[in-house]
Design a protein around this nucleic acid. Sequence first.
DNA 1: CTGGTGTCTCCCCCGGGGGGAGAGTCCACC
DNA 2: GGTGGACTCTCCCCCCGGGGGAGACACCAG
Lengths: 271, 271
Amino acid sequence: MLAIGEFSRLTHLSIRTLRRYHEGGLLEPELVDASSGYRYYSADQIPVAQVIHRLRELDVPLADVRRILGTSDPDARAALVAAHLSRLEAELARTRHAVTSLRRLLTPEPAPLHVELRAEPETMVAAVADDVSTGDVAAWFAGAMSELDAVLGPSAEHGPAGGLYDNSLFEHGRGRLLLYRPSAAPPQRGRVHPVHLPAVELAVTTHHGDHDDADVTYGQLGAWVVANALTVAGPVRERYLVGPRDTDDVAAWRTEIGWPVFRVASEAPHP
Amino acid sequence: MLAIGEFSRLTHLSIRTLRRYHEGGLLEPELVDASSGYRYYSADQIPVAQVIHRLRELDVPLADVRRILGTSDPDARAALVAAHLSRLEAELARTRHAVTSLRRLLTPEPAPLHVELRAEPETMVAAVADDVSTGDVAAWFAGAMSELDAVLGPSAEHGPAGGLYDNSLFEHGRGRLLLYRPSAAPPQRGRVHPVHLPAVELAVTTHHGDHDDADVTYGQLGAWVVANALTVAGPVRERYLVGPRDTDDVAAWRTEIGWPVFRVASEAPHP
DNA sequence: CTGGTGTCTCCCCCGGGGGGAGAGTCCACC
DNA sequence: GGTGGACTCTCCCCCCGGGGGAGACACCAG
């Protein structure tokens, strides 16, 4: 039987943290003296504590640690751990992206933005739409795109795919996403269904390269829209002219970003 | 002039977060209406907001973001950013290590631990010692080791280097570290100074491989010590028999871990 | 002028940890 | 068998960087 201090030394977990893990039902001491409240641990609990320590180092939330520890089946347990490792992978990718885009932000932008105003007609499309949190956007996007491809086939006869991004996605971290491919007679299958995209006036620019730093372009476009005295309205539109399906050369990717505006008729846009 | 909601849409920062950044002096609105308290931003602030956004994605603390933004000299700014990127590198290494060691923890340990009791005589060493936080241990270790090497020369004539780890390092996240190399007549230069390591009775085992999962071995050794009814006392000792200076083959590394004990004379250790 | 939407402040909550106060316990030594 | 020092207990407050929601005010188009 080990007192908490000794157990702390053996596991490299602080006394405070051990107490917290007890409260949280993560690591119950083998024995708690009823009169003094002293916690006593057994040597068998050392490896358990170490597993917890490791998982916490990997930023696995305590609730998930509890779940992992509560799973006796080693396969199921391994699956839970693997899930977290893939979460880490995603995290890492996100970090890499942020670094790239930070670099772009900090090196001054030489090329001025080319923006044009364009009247987009009403369009019939096959679409997948959902309410999504910002963290899930990448995964949702991949799923929706492959579902669209599965239903419509790979050919892009009617033009490139596109997406609509609700503003609340950026303001509140959650909002409606709509991913579409143009189609004269869109089928209704699975999540794919026909949608009439309404006609809209757009301020359009083209983003070059990886999608990671697209929001830099977003910001530039937004600044342009503001500078040209146009009011913003409705969801932002994207159109994937050249993307991962077309080429592996990231530098060649082209994404059109369209910011819906109310044109101020008398005002001629100036660069 | 952009109201906060519009600015939020343009920068993909939530309104709440923008307000927080204002309070924190990170991003002051261009204008705050004195009577209504309404915040108004200018389009010029969009790129600033985006830089903040990126840095936060990289988990740069707000205080550091403030410092980076407050640095007008682009070189100094680049240096600050680079510092954070290298912090990320370190973080990544730590994560990789945790994964390795978690794997070891979850695969059952076949080989039982070989532990021997050993009376360590008093030793004269050249040492570097400091109070260090757990997060800084790796960096401190590298620095101290190269300082020792610089002062003593590369030859290891008097035996391998070693270290002493104060218990409070594990209990409170901060404690005294001492790194030494044996030396008959230790010089006093820079941080290097002569130290008499006191004689001590140790329970010793050898850790194989990378240092990342050394604490698994620590735990096993600790469990052994507890099981064999010896009381723990004083700082843990390590000795680097085979390490990165000797070979690049991580699997060949050997670290001796010595747990100071008060031998209970009558008790024969059982495996 | 009026209603809807935007914005304000204020307080509470989250997770995962740390600091410190004040009281009670354990145990080795005398 | 005391006693002092080390250990442990609970409790409250703080950190960071966010989010939720209430209730009051401001803005602006019809």
